[in-house]
Simulated scan of single mutants.
Amino acid sequence: MQVQQAVMKAFGNLLAIVTLSRGKCGLSKCITHYLVAMAVADLLVIIFDVIFYEINDIYFSYSFLDYTPICSLNIALVFTAIDCSVWLTVFFTFDRFIAICCQRLREKYCTERTAAIVIATVFGLSFVENIPIYFENEHLEMVDNVPWFCIVKASLSNLPLWVAYFFFDITLTPFAPFVLIVLLNALTIKNIVRANRVRRALRRSNNSEDYNDPEMENRRKSIILLLAISGSFILLWMVTFVYSVCTQFVGIQFMFRDYNNPFAIMEHTGYMLQCLSSCSNTFIYVVAQAKFRDELKHILKYPLTLTKLVPS
């Protein structure tokens, strides 16, 4: 069942990447860049975390992925992919905030070039920030002088520098993104509500009907997509956020093994929802974007069309 779910999640993100990359979904190139990058990051989370880590641990023990250097590299890539997925969501939310609330800055910031620079920077900094993760592990056992599996070095818990890095890491993800997304959404919604009131008042004074206003329709579509993506992130990361707060103020630890303990249940529930967030955006596009649905149908029908063109 886990293998099937992983394949479905990966396939969903691949479909989103292909569909959005065609550029026929009625979205600006700036938005398309962010959505494609988010789909790529989510796909990497599924590959490194769900397939290479979880499924390999359950079904393929002592595979080459369990060789300690490969295991350590995979764990570092897991955290890199998660950070990319999270911070791309933040910058997409920030881009929509600028586009909707800051008219003077919109022309300069909300461009294809800026989006490409931001995306490349997020991927690069996420990789650099997680390099220490590779060195935090040691082998769990030795078999014929070959190191197998990964376990966090016990000596690290006493090093002030490592404690500081750990605090910085969990502040970077998920504390800061969670707060920023909530704040940016609140400011964006406040600005849209205020602008819509002014626009309705002006149209009433001109005896115009609201439903003929294309500007308000575009704003409505933008806010639906924005709130769907960022709202999904907030809901699916809420448990992980609360658990991270508990680790700082209650004194509990990560990767707790007592499954009768409520904090252990909370941690693993948060992890499950966090993995789910890596495939939720594709379904959001299907629900919120009519042109995305049309393009998706076209792509899915293409193999059938191709077989009809090929003579038997």
Rank of each mutant, 00 (worst) to 15 (best):
Q5T: 13
A6W: 05
K9L: 12
G12P: 01
G12L: 03
L15F: 08
L15Y: 08
I17F: 02
G26C: 01
S28D: 06
M38A: 06
M38H: 04
V40Y: 11
V45K: 00
I46K: 05
I47E: 01
V50S: 11
V50A: 09
V50C: 09
I51A: 06
D57K: 06
I58W: 05
F60C: 10
F60Q: 07
S61A: 13
Y62N: 05
D66C: 10
Y67G: 03
T68S: 09
P69I: 04
P69V: 07
L73V: 08
L73I: 07
A76E: 03
L77Y: 02
L77G: 00
V86P: 00
V90Q: 00
F91E: 01
I98T: 08
C102K: 11
R106T: 05
R106W: 05
T114D: 01
I117L: 06
L125R: 04
E141T: 14
M142V: 10
M142F: 14
F149H: 11
C150D: 02
V152Q: 12
K153T: 04
S155L: 09
N158D: 14
A164R: 08
I170F: 00
L172T: 05
T173F: 11
P174M: 03
P174Q: 07
I181A: 01
N185S: 10
A195D: 12
A195R: 08
R199C: 13
R199P: 00
R204E: 15
R204D: 14
S205Y: 11
E215H: 11
R220S: 15
R220C: 13
S222W: 07
L226E: 04
L227D: 10
A228M: 06
I229F: 08
M238T: 07
T240Q: 14
T240K: 05
F241G: 05
Y243E: 08
S244P: 04
T247Y: 01
F249I: 12
Q253Y: 13
F256H: 15
H268S: 12
C279D: 07
S280W: 10
F283C: 04
I284M: 03
V286I: 13
V286Q: 06
A290F: 09
K291S: 13
K291Y: 04
E295A: 02
Y302P: 01
T305M: 13
T305Y: 11
S312F: 11
